[in-house]
């Protein structure tokens, strides 16, 4: 309640505070952030907040232009010119001298790149997710078979429809229906983890066959895709992404984040010593809560630390 009242008050007081600080420091809010706050998520999040809450019509237009560019995946091809456009617009509107404040233009440009790079990544991820797995598409089928050969290099898949799929944790004889709402994103995530970190992936797969703490590898993997997707979509993952990538984050960054989440979840699951697989939703919630808590600290970066015991 108190917090609500404060945010209400702040909303009205903010322009006044900004005006006062501008007079006394001779710097606009964006400059104060770029000069005063250490680079990384902390600075970028503050810049984002400042831009999103701007009441200036030109800044608002700039934001909607940038949103459009990131949604149509234009940030890679002519990313530079869009960043310049953002920097020049802000400097013009806020009467900032480009030569005196060259440090500002650099840091601010980097923030813009991160903020809208993130939104572009979200769009990319969303597109993949929306693509349903289609068993009549040879491209999709090839990917599915690739997943098998990555996880089970020594075992031949006897038929496309086979009980063997259950060994890597699909529900039935045909994985097609298991991707559901996560679509190709789920498959691409599973493939990336198995291809880039084969030891870690097989380590997790072997845990999934544990007599007491076993789980269903692919299904849990698809649930982790859902977790990673939501963290990205609701903005919780910003801390990590802004800290981990200086420029425009690529899909690879998302895949790496997924690999981290999957590997760490496996560790967490074993440590929890669940009674049986029915504990999954409870353990998953607990794991997600811990993640959210650590991502609330703007210094957090999720570091891959694949420690696999060699036998």
């Amino acid at each position: 309640m108190l917090q609500l009242a404060w945010s209400f008050l702040y909303w009205y007081l903010r322009p006044l505070i900004k005006w006062f600080l501008r007079r006394t420091t001779k710097l606009c809010e964006l400059q104060r952030i770029c000069y005063g706050v250490p680079s990384g998520a902390q600075r970028t999040l503050e810049v984002e907040f400042s831009l999103e809450n701007s009441r200036c019509a030109e800044i608002k237009r700039l934001i909607s232009d940038l949103n459009q560019a990131s949604e149509s995946n234009k940030l890679d091809a002519n990313g530079r010119s869009i960043i310049h456009y953002a920097v020049y617009t802000v400097c013009r509107v806020k009467c900032i001298d480009l030569h005196i404040h060259s440090q500002f233009t650099k840091s601010f440009g980097a923030c813009v790149q991160q903020i809208w790079g993130y939104r572009q990544l979200l769009q990319e991820v969303e597109n993949l997710r929306k693509t349903s797995y289609d068993s009549t598409n040879p491209n999709h089928e090839e990917k599915l078979l690739l997943l098998w050969s990555l996880l089970k290099p020594d075992e031949q898949l006897e038929a496309r429809i086979s009980k063997q799929w259950q060994e890597i944790g699909f529900q039935g004889d045909d994985p097609t229906t298991d991707f559901r709402g996560m679509g190709l994103l789920g498959l691409e995530n599973l493939i990336f983890f198995a291809r880039e970190y084969p030891k870690a992936a097989r380590h997790v797969l072997s845990h999934s066959r544990h007599p007491n703490y076993g789980f269903v590898y692919a299904i849990v993997g698809i649930n982790i895709t859902s977790m990673a997707y939501y963290l990205l979509r609701n903005g919780t993952a910003k801390t990590h992404v802004y800290n981990a990538c200086n420029g425009i984050p690529s899909l690879k960054l998302f895949h790496i984040m997924y690999s981290y989440l999957f590997f760490e979840f496996d560790k967490f699951w074993i440590n929890e010593k669940p009674k049986n697989v029915m504990q999954f939703s409870i353990v998953r919630e607990k794991y997600e809560k811990g993640l959210k808590d650590s991502l609330a600290d703007p210094k957090t970066i999720l570091r891959l630390n694949f420690h696999v015991d060699e036998i």
Binding site: R180, N223, Y229, M278, F280
Partner: peptide, 12 residues
């Protein structure tokens, strides 16, 4: 929203 369902491991 029903567009983001994943297979249920355990229960909801």
């Amino acid at each position: 929203d029903v567009t983001h369902i994943t297979p249920t491991q355990g229960f909801n």
